[in-house]
């Protein structure tokens, strides 16, 4: 019973952290794309939004976004490690 509670609440907590981190990461990437463009603009506003759009699409496919999934992996590894460290002599 405690185990099920741990899974449910742990999953909820990890999801909150995942949403927070992925929002932050996306926002930072968007800001960098905008600033890169504004530092060296190569076209009008349409080209600017196309550039940003393309950058965000490549971000969505990128490795960095997948790294955020570690938020679901690391706590599980930690709990497993703690379990074994505590319960084996």
């Amino acid at each position: 019973m405690g185990f099920i509670r741990l899974i449910i609440f742990g999953f909820l907590g990890m999801t909150v952290i995942y949403c927070l981190v992925s929002w932050y990461s996306r926002s930072v990437r968007l800001e960098r794309l905008e600033k890169d463009w504004d530092a060296d603009p190569q076209g009008d506003d349409n080209a600017r939004s196309a550039h940003i759009e393309a950058g965000m699409v490549s971000y969505e496919k990128g490795f960095r976004k997948k790294l955020i999934l570690l938020i679901y992996v690391v706590p599980v590894v930690f709990v497993t490690t703690a379990f074994f460290v505590t319960n084996t002599n």
Partner: peptide, 10 residues
């Protein structure tokens, strides 16, 4: 399983 998170059963 939950609190405090030592996962001690032994």
């Amino acid at each position: 399983w939950i609190w405090p998170p030592y996962f001690k059963f032994d």
